[in-house]
Structure formats: structure tokens, C-alpha cells
């Protein structure tokens, strides 16, 4: 791709001007790029794409070893759907407050953006508190990383998700502190938008985890696994005639 040709006007423009005059969502602090996409935003999307692969591998591992625990405790003995449903709802609502924070900042409503950022961080903290309580309860019931396959895969998947939420909460609290010191203004809304992308990603990962780990009944996947295995076996025997 050809390099951009800098016009004298563009070269003399101060940092943070000359962009996106018709649709300024805080991208004004970025120099022009050959792609036309803000580099920080593209980097965040690249990171999220790679994080998708990371969680994809973790969740796939969980599902494969889902019914391979030789000893208890087993998922159906521990998982509390109503409790986790409330946690899922809390995280969903934090996505709403996050997007409202961004909308407020883009309208130069600084007070509103601070309130919504604080609300998002609070909801994230509530979610983390719930997860800590759940982990503690499971541990008291005998579940551990070393105890059985369910413990190993469950704590790994949900633990890494919790670590992501923790990073998000710290990020939001940092932005709140910067905002309170007057460093987060309308023209800086890209900073909040990028944090928001990360936060929403954490939410969509939980949407998947909630279904795959909590809602799909424990023995369901085993039955389907055996049925599929038998079908594959029979098909291979008929087609190839080798068994």
C-alpha cells in the first residue's frame, strides 16, 4: 500500500487536529494512517481477535474434558444456575453502562461519563465478588485444580475470564481517576472507546461461557459425543470396509 503523501497543510497541523471533521469520536489525537483506520483501535481489534483464539482453545478444552472426571465433585453437584444467572445479568448490564459512558463523553457530558464509568467498574467488581464467592464455595466442596478434570478446566476457563475482568476494572478505575483530574475530555473519547471494546469482549466471552459451562447439562454432551462417535465409526466401516 502506498505511503500517504503529506501536504504542507497536513504537515503543519498540530497533533490532534485535521481529522474526521464530520464524525469526530475522539480520533482526532491520531496522525493519519495509510489504512484510514486509527492504529490504536485496529490494534485493540487485533488483540481481541487473538484473545478469541485464546478463549476458543480454553473452552474447547473444557468441552472435550467435560465428562472425563473420574472422581467428584461433578458439575451438576456444584453449579448453581440462579446464582450464575444473576452474575451474567450483572455483566450484561455493565456493558450497557459502558456504552452509556462512551455516549456521554462523546456528547461532552463529563459528569455523566464519570457516573457511568464508575457504575461499570462497580458492576465489574460485583461480578468478581460473585466469582470469588463461587470459587470459594466450590473449593469448600472439594473442587480444585488438581482434583479432577472438571476442576482443572473449570478453574482455568473461568479464572482467566476473571483475570480479564480484573484488568478491565483496573483500566476503568484508571480512566475514572484520569477523568476526575480533567484528563478525559470529549476529544479523548477514543481512550474510553478502546477500553469499552475490551469490556464488551469480556462480556461476550461470558455469554459463551455461561452457556457452554453452566447451562448445557452435564451428561448431555456425553450422550451426543457417544452418538456422534458411533455414527462416525459405522460410517467409516461401511465406506471403507476396513473394520
Amino acid at each position: 500500500m502506498a505511503q500517504a503523501v503529506l501536504t504542507p497543510e497536513a504537515q503543519t497541523q498540530p497533533h490532534g487536529s485535521g481529522h474526521d471533521t464530520g464524525h469526530d469520536h475522539g480520533h482526532a489525537d491520531h496522525p493519519p494512517t495509510s489504512t484510514g483506520i486509527n492504529s490504536r483501535k485496529m490494534l485493540m481489534w487485533l488483540f481481541l481477535a487473538s484473545d478469541c483464539m485464546f478463549f476458543g482453545a480454553l473452552i474447547a478444552t473444557y468441552m472435550i474434558y467435560r465428562n472425563h472426571s473420574l472422581t467428584g465433585p461433578f458439575p451438576h453437584e456444584l453449579i448453581d444456575i440462579p446464582y450464575t444467572s444473576v452474575s451474567a445479568f450483572v455483566l450484561l448490564m455493565s456493558s450497557l453502562t459502558m456504552v452509556l459512558a462512551l455516549a456521554a463523553l462523546q456528547k461532552n457530558d463529563l459528569r455523566g461519563s464519570r457516573v457511568w464509568i464508575a457504575a461499570t467498574a462497580l458492576l465489574g467488581t460485583v461480578f468478581l465478588g460473585g466469582q470469588f464467592f463461587e470459587f470459594t464455595e466450590f473449593h469448600h466442596e472439594g473442587l480444585s485444580l488438581q482434583g479432577n478434570m472438571f476442576g482443572a478446566t473449570f478453574f482455568t476457563v473461568t479464572g482467566f475470564h476473571g483475570a480479564h475482568v480484573t484488568v478491565g476494572v483496573v483500566w476503568l478505575l484508571t480512566l475514572l481517576w484520569v477523568s476526575l483530574r480533567g484528563g478525559l475530555k470529549q476529544e479523548d473519547s477514543l481512550d474510553l472507546e478502546i477500553a469499552g471494546l475490551y469490556w464488551h469482549f469480556v462480556d461476550i466471552v461470558w455469554i459463551v461461557i455461561f452457556v457452554m459451562i453452566y447451562l448445557i447439562p452435564y451428561d448431555k454432551s456425553t450422550e451426543q459425543l457417544h452418538e456422534a462417535t458411533a455414527q462416525i465409526f459405522n460410517t467409516a466401516r461401511m465406506v471403507l470396509g476396513i473394520f
Binding site: L6, D20, H23, D24, H25, G36, N38, K41, A103
Partner: peptide, 25 residues
């Protein structure tokens, strides 16, 4: 390829399409 920064400034140096609107609250 990008032709000039001045042209960029008129279109979309950020990530959004010109002329579209985000959803409302």
C-alpha cells in the same frame, strides 16, 4: 492506496464511516 493526507482528512481517518450515526442511548 491513500492519495493524500488532505484527502484523508476529508473522509475517515478514524474508523467510522462518514455520515452514519451511532445508536442513541
Amino acid at each position: 492506496e491513500r492519495t493524500s493526507v488532505a484527502h484523508q482528512a476529508q473522509s475517515l481517518p478514524g474508523t467510522h464511516e462518514a455520515g452514519h450515526e451511532h445508536p442513541t442511548e
